[in-house]
């Protein structure tokens, strides 16, 4: 197999899948870091975001990529609403209650998607798109846009967290919540910002998976395990770790078909999760101990 074929058939799909996982894993790691709970509704929130984008496409007749930012805003509002309605209520109780509540929210979101849009697979646009060639590398426009969007999202988020006052406050809250409060950081504002970002990221990851495959009510649920594996692999609470973890999990999944039957592809994330928890529970970039 020529190098270029290897790149086109394994590396590009691995990076594509990995960057979609990365965007989802960033949200998981941020919720873990700041609110200290595992957000099980993350995948189904991504499904919801993808279907909201479908609705925007259907209602306004815009292209899917134009619908994406609108869907990100709407899903962000939804995420803040879910936090206010369900999680906020449990904030002072043990974290496991919120984890269970998020599982309930996951089921509610999925059922809502099934009620509104039905259970059959859907797509944003019909028809076959031929890939373009860039120095021998085959990329469809939607794949190119996916890569570009992920880069924009990661860079924008990094700048926000590193350079802005409230971004630093979010990092401080993740680092040492008691000291952040002693410094006068308003918990509620951080939580509001967190869910805004998480909702937008969910919509982006769901949309990007859907545009590269198809929309199904279960798509987000299947994203959950690789996204958690990516977040824990990178180190809980570490945004850059989640990106790294996402890319690794995506790449390993795609490469696994070289040595294992393709049906086991989905199990690789689980294997990575088990291995990292056994060998290096703090993750590659020294995250929090769970």
């Amino acid at each position: 197999m020529a190098i270029i074929d290897f790149i086109n058939f394994y590396i590009v799909p691995g990076l594509l899948l990995g960057s979609i996982y990365a965007v989802g894993a960033i949200g998981i790691t941020m919720v873990f870091g700041i609110l200290r709970f595992a957000h099980f509704a993350h995948g189904d929130m991504a499904t919801m975001g993808a279907f909201i984008a479908l609705a925007v496409v259907g209602l306004f007749g815009v292209t899917p990529w134009t619908a994406l930012p609108i869907a990100m805003v709407l899903t962000a509002i939804l995420a803040v609403g879910i936090d206010r309605t369900f999680y906020d209520y449990l904030r002072k109780r043990p974290a496991i209650l919120t984890v269970m509540a998020s599982l309930g929210v996951a089921l509610m979101l999925r059922s809502l998607v099934q009620v509104i849009w039905g259970v059959d697979p859907q797509t944003y646009q019909r028809g076959i798109v031929r890939p373009d060639t860039y120095f021998g590398i085959l990329l469809r426009p939607r794949e190119l846009y996916t890569f570009l969007s992920v880069i924009v999202i990661v860079v924008a988020l990094t700048i926000f967290l590193r350079a802005s006052k409230w971004g630093k406050a979010m990092r401080a809250m993740s680092d040492n919540p008691d000291l952040a409060r002693l410094s006068g950081v308003d918990n509620r504002m951080v939580t509001l910002l967190l869910w805004t970002i998480v909702g937008a990221l969910c919509a982006a990851s769901g949309f990007m998976l859907a545009i590269n495959t198809e929309l199904t009510p279960m798509m987000g649920w299947f994203l959950l395990l690789p996204m958690f594996a990516a977040a824990i692999l990178g180190g809980v609470g570490r945004v850059e770790g989640a990106v790294l973890g996402g890319l690794i999990v995506g790449m390993v999944e795609e490469l696994s078909v070289l040595v294992m039957p393709g049906q086991y592809k989905a199990a690789t994330a689980f294997v990575i999760l088990l291995l990292i928890l056994l060998v290096r529970p703090r993750g590659l970039l020294n995250g929090k101990v769970l």
Partner: peptide, 25 residues
Amino acid sequence: CYVPQVENVFREMTVHENFEMGAFL
């Protein structure tokens, strides 16, 4: 202002960012 005995810095943030957080208000 109060300096707790333990866990009194933001470990993952730089020295300068720690000072910035001190001046948050």
